[in-house]
């Protein structure tokens, strides 16, 4: 079965600068894949290589089983590095021109304008659009071909909070409808809310890949109790000393969160005052910074 996106050893160098290095990326059919990285990490360069806009220095790309340079980007829609259209045409006429290139009918133009909620302003000149409207027109253009694979580069840039929420809903809806979506972002919350899997890129290298839960790492419990020393001793007796750590004036227990009720009963039964006992999740932002820092250090 052809994977929607598959790269092997993808590398791009500009003179002495390596923008992307040895990138092995796999996006599975039907998933919403988040491509996460700080500004300048190589996200857009990677996406440009996927679409054949930039020629890789080394490595291979296959989109829906075919190299992008071999022919038309059949079944692929994309919005790369912000929207770009003809300022003297209206939004609708811009899409009509693009529909001619894509070989799709005018009915698709009306449909995608409606999908991004731009029908009312479709007759206005593109030059007069707000940044958010331009972004929505860019997504509409990406959807013109009713793509099986949608590649979106920072799709919520320039959108207000309501527009961002609409965009996330649209992406989730497309994913639920079977469209594979590769969405790049530097916004962790956005990726967390819409993506099935995440790849983290730093200094041109893929430094981690997996579900959001996998990236967060093992779950556990956070315990605040008085007196802390006695609570720590009792907790070690209950779950094992190697699973208990004193962190920031409390305890972190490397156990399944569903053991919280049992632990609470035992600790209270031992005469300890339990002030807080809750599941502990690693903050995704911290995970991201750790991964980026580690990736940067590895490259250096």
């Amino acid at each position: 079965m052809n994977l929607p996106v598959q790269t092997e050893g993808l590398t791009k160098r500009y003179g002495g600068l390596t923008a992307v290095q040895d990138l092995n990326l796999t996006v599975r059919a039907g998933e919403v894949y988040g491509f996460l990285g700080p500004n300048g990490a190589g996200k857009t360069t990677t996406l440009r290589m996927l679409l054949g806009l930039v020629r890789p220095t080394a490595g291979t790309v296959r989109l829906l089983g075919r190299p992008p340079a071999a022919g038309r980007l059949t079944g692929v829609g994309a919005l790369i590095e912000g929207p770009a259209f003809y300022p003297y045409l209206s939004g609708r006429d811009n899409l009509r021109v693009l529909a001619r290139y894509a070989g799709v009918g005018a009915d698709r133009v009306a449909l995608v304008l409606d999908l991004v909620d731009l029908t009312d302003r479709a007759g206005d000149r593109y030059a007069g659009y707000s940044l958010g409207m331009k972004q929505r027109l860019g997504v509409a253009a990406a959807l013109l071909k009713d793509p099986r694979l949608l590649i979106l580069d920072e799709p919520t840039n320039g959108l207000d909070p309501a527009g961002m929420a609409d965009m996330r809903t649209l992406i989730r809806r497309l994913g639920a409808a079977g469209c594979t979506v590769l969405v790049s972002s530097h916004l962790l919350g956005e990726v967390e809310q819409v993506c099935d899997r995440v790849g983290v890129i730093a200094r041109g290298r893929l430094v981690a890949e997996g579900s959001v839960a996998e990236l967060r790492g093992a779950a556990g419990l956070r315990l605040l109790a008085d007196p802390l020393d006695a609570a720590a001793a009792r907790a070690r007796d209950l779950v094992g000393a190697e699973r208990v750590r004193v962190v920031d004036g409390g305890l972190e227990l490397a156990v399944e969160p569903d053991r919280a009720a049992w632990l609470n009963t035992e600790l209270v039964g031992a005469g300890l005052a339990v002030r807080e006992l809750r599941p502990r999740e690693r903050d995704l932002e911290q995970v991201f910074f750790d991964l980026v820092e580690k990736g940067t250090a590895d490259v250096a």
């Binding site: 806009l53 059949t74 692929v76 790369i80 693009l98 894509a102 070989g103 253009a141 071909k145």
Partner: peptide, 14 residues
Amino acid sequence: GWGTWKTVLTQGPT
């Protein structure tokens, strides 16, 4: 100037 090469080329034509 408008950065529209990418817009056109991602619609499929070579």
